[in-house]
Amino acid sequence: MRQFNISGKILALSIVLLFGLSIGGSMIIGYWRTESSKIPTRIEGGPFAGAYDPAAIKGSYTFKDIESAFKIPVTQLAEAFAFAVSGEPETTQPKSFEAYPQPVEGEVGTDSIRLFVSLYTSIPYEAEEDTRLPYSALALLRREGKIDEERWAELKDRYGVEMGSPSGMSEAPTSESGSILEIKGNTTYGQLFDAGLTAATIEEVIGIKVGNRDQAIKDHLEAEGLEFSQYKALLQEKVDNVQKGGN
């Protein structure tokens, strides 16, 4: 019987080629996953079987990754967690939240985005005890109809915090009059949203479509030929009513 001698170099090359072909085949049929893959695991059983699991979201995921998996627009994620967005919102990662001033009690971090996604999609998730949500996130959920008024009031008391101030705050900011927000000439639509007003509520008062989030209400009204002073008290009443748990 003829014997064949295989050199060490040929054997090593054969092993490398075989390994490469195995990986390539796995990638083609969808079984190969690298560590850079930002795809959360799916829920295996129950009424939400097959859906992506909010609990599987990692701090290294970007807003774009979350949008792809849970169909939450990056623009809304950026609005909900505006305090942490710098540069391109698509690349913002939940793990960056921890670098910002935190509330006196609790923390706004990766678990906050898991809770937000859960509330947005109605996929159950049990948040950690010290998890908190920015008022801006709760206001967006309310505005988009993801939570009703009763649930909003409950979540605001349980999880709501104001982000962006140097000291952080565990309660809603209040003015000297005790209001959650004192409306002034430089008050923006974004501040009304963060205080809990919906676009529909604001439009009911002012009679025109709201401006963009960063636009001062006074500037917008005057540009439309409306007198800010005629609507200031009415808007303040709405804000005060929200703080008391009204509509």
Rank of each mutant, 00 (worst) to 15 (best):
R114T: 06
F116Y: 15
K146C: 10
T187M: 03
E79A: 15
K38L: 05
E35V: 12
G211D: 11
G160E: 08
G245Y: 08
G30L: 08
K38H: 09
E79N: 11
E35A: 12
E237Q: 12
E144G: 01
P47H: 08
L115M: 08
R143L: 02
L21W: 04
F19H: 04
S122W: 07
Q236Y: 02
P134R: 08
A233S: 15
A199Q: 11
E176L: 13
T131Q: 04
F70M: 05
L235N: 05
A195K: 05
E171Q: 06
V242W: 01
A56R: 08
T75E: 14
F193C: 00
S86W: 01
F83W: 08
K218E: 14
I39F: 03
T174C: 01
R132P: 04
S96Q: 14
S68T: 13
F4K: 14
K71V: 02
L221W: 08
A56C: 04
G164E: 08
D240A: 10
G106W: 02
K232Q: 15
F83L: 09
E149Q: 15
I39N: 09
S112H: 04
S96D: 15
D240P: 03
E44C: 02
V205I: 15
Y159D: 06
L181K: 05
K184C: 00
G20T: 04
H220I: 02
G8L: 07
S36C: 01
A233E: 15
P173V: 09
K38W: 00
G30Y: 05
G246W: 06
S167I: 11
R114D: 05
